[in-house]
Amino acid sequence: MSINSQKINVNSNKLTQVILTSILCSSLFTSSVFAADISFEIEGVNAQPSKIYAQLFNSQDSYSKGEAFSATYLQAKQGINKVIFTNIPVGQYAIRFFQDENNNGTLDTNLFGMPSEGYGFSNNAKPNYGPVGYQDAAFTVTEQQDPVINQTHIIY
């Protein structure tokens, strides 16, 4: 458990940097790079009063390291929930999310690290005898489509 806390602290610092960097970058480049919104639709969410936290990644590397390009949350509601990422530059992305069903601010897991609360990925990618890789969840933001719609089903 102490090891986990360390990881969380490290990531917390990194994440703060990533978010700050991404805010700076998006304001700098908005005028020169085409950007679109991503509408990420999560089906099958239960009625538990809770929040859904979602992270957007823009590379294999950042996905592996857990360094999000952008992150957001919303109040969960039963059924379909839409997570919106706005003003996202053209490129390849992957999303992962969890539902904080007991409102303790963290994704609860069993002792071997398997989630015990709802979670999921873009493209409706699912673990299959192993983790969901970046490529399984990857989709593209292009100039042709705005917003980009990606659909998934929550895993309980």
Binding site: N4, I8, S12, G66, A68, R96, G105, G113
Partner: peptide, 13 residues
């Protein structure tokens, strides 16, 4: 802090 935990948990699945 919560989002950082998503990050830490990213390898969980």
């Amino acid at each position: 802090k919560s989002m950082a935990i998503v990050g830490a948990s990213s390898v969980l699945p």
